[in-house]
Design a protein around this nucleic acid. Structure first.
Lengths: 233, 233
DNA sequence: TAGTGGTCTAGACCACTCT
DNA sequence: GAGTGGTCTAGACCACTAC
């Protein structure tokens, strides 16, 4: 029997990728059409289509109607960054997680926040400050503002036992966000809460969250000295 | 005419997502089967399948054979991080890009590097140090080691005009990598090259790259003070 | 206008896994 | 064993775009 097991889209995808890596098709080269590849692999065009679609999603190839499929000239590397709860970050390190609310205050959005979240003048926000500990060592300082108009129920949440992130995940689970990452020097307050010298470099992540184009929350998370964020592609 | 335009997988995907956001189906709830949804939307099961597959890829729903499809309980947020060339980072800011090689030296891999890259004892590496400028302001300091065994041609590249990142992208375009991000204090050398005070917090990205399980390069990129990395989901 | 990818269909069989 | 998603097929029509 010269019969092979049936060709699946993963087989096609892997063979095409291998040929690209082996320079059978170099950067900028035109690949055969879906029809031709389908004939070569002895499968349906839909199978080839799915294989190539996955490679296109990964940025390996560029596809255009009429022009055909080309090997990407400068492949865009996309790293996937998993954004997880602080609790999970801590527990993944086999450390004991502890959360503590530092301050809870309803206030009028200051100008910079109204601008950041695109809030109307005088919008009410809930300002929360909290600490996250790993084995009772400072892990992260959280400074957060929540748009009360977007999540009215927030005024009834007390946040003494459940952190705002986990609470919001239950209320507004499927939101969009913009993230920024930076290195900042510890100010008086951060050095105090994170138990480090003033001006110590800290890794800081800011996140602005929307739900259906409505601003929900802005949070600034400052990690303990030495924290590393990891990712891969 | 009560006829609607034909239902596409994007329509199905968007309607299902909307229902999840509206809590028509709450976290942990079982969705109708593909067959039932196909009947509701008046389309083929394959169309529903593709719609749900996309939502599953995004982490919005969990799918299991026999059990069915459920709304994800704790949706994993995956931010996409575009890793681009330093040149592009600079030019995206409408700044003039300039590259300068600082040092180029063939050497035996030091212990920490051999460990990091999983190199054999005594492996030869090319050590490069370089600067990237935006409008002649220091933008990024690059400290890089390349595994000569993985890319023998590297010994013939001079790197005085083309940066190692761009050169490697041409030689080993489709590689895998692990990234770490951290905030570090500027040491004597960094403060010198980046024109900042010693101990200034700097955003630092380290990347280890493999091609077909073979280690290719390790690079440490230190950005100018105040640099922010952005992402979204 | 013609070529190429994008998508849909209706049906089929398979693979996993819950009961 | 049976229900559900995973995938493939063969064909069809559509949408974009280079020519």
């Amino acid at each position: 029997m010269t019969e092979r097991a049936k060709i699946g889209f993963q087989d096609v995808r892997d063979v095409v990728l291998e040929r690209i890596q082996n320079r059978v098709w170099s950067q900028g080269d035109l690949l055969p059409t879906e029809q031709e590849l389908a004939e070569e692999f002895g499968c349906a065009r839909a199978t080839v289509n799915r294989a190539l679609r996955e490679l296109a999603d990964r940025g390996i190839i560029d596809r255009k109607r009429k022009s055909g499929t080309r090997v990407a000239v400068s492949p865009v590397k996309q790293a996937k960054l998993e954004i997880v709860l602080t609790r999970q970050l801590v527990e993944d390190r086999n450390a004991n997680y502890r959360y503590a609310l530092v301050e809870r205050k309803e206030e009028t959005a200051p100008g910079w926040l109204a601008s950041q979240l695109d809030l109307p003048m005088g919008a009410k926000v809930l300002h929360l400050r909290a600490m996250h500990y790993a084995d009772n060592q400072p892990f992260q300082y959280e400074d957060r503002w929540i748009n009360i108009a977007a999540v009215p129920k927030v005024v009834d949440a007390d946040f003494t036992t459940v952190g705002p992130n986990e609470w919001l995940l239950g209320e507004v689970p499927f939101s969009n966000a913009e993230l920024t990452f930076a290195a900042v020097p510890a100010d008086d307050e951060l050095s105090d809460y994170l138990a480090c010298a003033k001006a110590t470099p800290l890794f800081q992540m800011e996140r602005t969250t929307w739900f259906r184009s409505q601003p929900v929350t802005f949070v600034r998370m400052s990690f303990h000295p030495g924290y590393q964020m990891r990712s891969q592609y």
